[in-house]
């Protein structure tokens, strides 16, 4: 058994080297396919991050009247916190609001003067509400329309990023569709090329195969080298893809960071953490694909 595996491997590796150009073309095509798939993975990841980053910044500021009572503000906070759509509620008291305002305008004399002239704190308390998802803000805004709160509220300020998010989604959806179509095409080409490589292999080795069968080689023994060769090509293609992908990501990572306000996107980290699963899945898919087309080619061109 081990001996047969050794002999089959030897034949497979011989095939690989003897038809070097054919192997190279096959690998190139497999690599292209894998690269498009990985670009899709990266794209998915980056858009998710981008949307999340924008969504993180979305918040509703709720300004209460200056005369709003402490308890009514507290009631609103408690109520908002009880909503499952609400992620976080921060309270800014009237005094804090005044302090923040003064700090912001300390160089502006007119403003500081008029503040002094008023004499009392013109600000009321305010809340900053964050939701889990952009769509949840509707619930929050509606909740605040409740008469219980409404009369105490001076203004609600909703910094709406929904337009931006829609735009990100639209653009990436288009790129994604293009990517999926492209990898579909590459996949098809890859199947055809593998098919042809096996066909050529069978043709080149037809004499050898004929003799093998005459002297009593089992069908499995005749077929195995071709199957193994394609598995070998798949593994090499995946390794090449990983080798190309890693430095590219390392270069891209800081560039993406720029758009995320200098924060790292965690792309490399993502690949490092999910690499085994990602590449494992890709290898399994690729091997399945190449074995399938090998099987097709043998069914057509290898009469055993």
């Amino acid at each position: 058994m081990i001996l047969s595996i050794y002999r089959v491997s030897k034949f497979a590796i011989q095939n690989f080297w003897r038809n070097f150009w054919l192997s190279l073309i096959t690998i190139t095509m497999l690599v292209l396919t894998l690269l498009t798939v990985n670009i899709l993975v990266v794209l998915n990841f980056v858009t998710d991050r981008a949307i999340q980053a924008v969504a993180d910044r979305v918040e509703v500021s709720v300004y209460f009247h200056a005369n709003a009572s402490e308890t009514s503000v507290q009631n609103a906070v408690t109520y908002l916190r009880s909503l499952q759509q609400v992620r976080d509620v921060a309270t800014i008291s009237a005094d804090e609001a005044l302090e923040q305002f003064a700090a912001r305008h300390q160089d502006d004399e007119t403003i500081m003067k008029s503040l002094e002239e008023i004499g009392t704190n013109p600000f009321g308390p305010s809340l900053i509400v964050k939701a889990h998802e952009v769509a949840d803000f509707n619930t929050v805004l509606e909740a605040l329309e409740n008469p219980q709160f409404r009369d105490n509220i001076r203004e609600k300020d909703f910094s709406n990023y929904e337009a931006i998010i829609t735009r990100i989604k639209d653009t990436t959806d288009r790129i994604r569709t293009f990517g999926i179509v492209l990898s579909g095409i590459f996949l098809l080409i890859a199947v055809l090329i593998v098919f042809n490589t096996v066909r050529m292999g069978l043709f080149i080795h037809r004499e050898e195969i004929g003799i093998m069968k005459l002297v009593g080689a089992s069908n499995a023994f005749v077929r195995a080298p071709f199957l193994l060769e394609m598995v070998l090509l798949s593994v090499v293609a995946l390794a090449v893809t990983a080798l190309l992908l890693y430095p590219t990501l390392a270069v891209l990572e800081p560039k993406f960071g720029f758009y995320f306000g200098g924060q790292t996107v965690g792309l490399i980290n993502y690949f490092e953490q999910n690499g085994w699963r990602l590449f494992g899945l890709q290898l399994a898919g690729l091997v399945f694909l190449t074995l399938f087309s090998t099987w097709l080619a043998m069914r057509k061109y290898l009469k055993v």
């Binding site: 001996l3 047969s4 002999r7 004499e207 003799i211 005459l214 002297v215 009593g216 023994f221």
Partner: peptide, 29 residues
């Protein structure tokens, strides 16, 4: 089985051509 055209593998030596028949049948070295 023996044929008019010998059916030997051109890129294998005499020894290899003969041992090939045993190899494909899984014989021990």
């Amino acid at each position: 089985v023996v044929f008019q055209d010998f059916k030997l593998l051109p890129r294998k030596t005499v020894y290899e051509n003969v041992s090939f028949a045993l190899q494909v049948a899984g014989s021990a070295p």
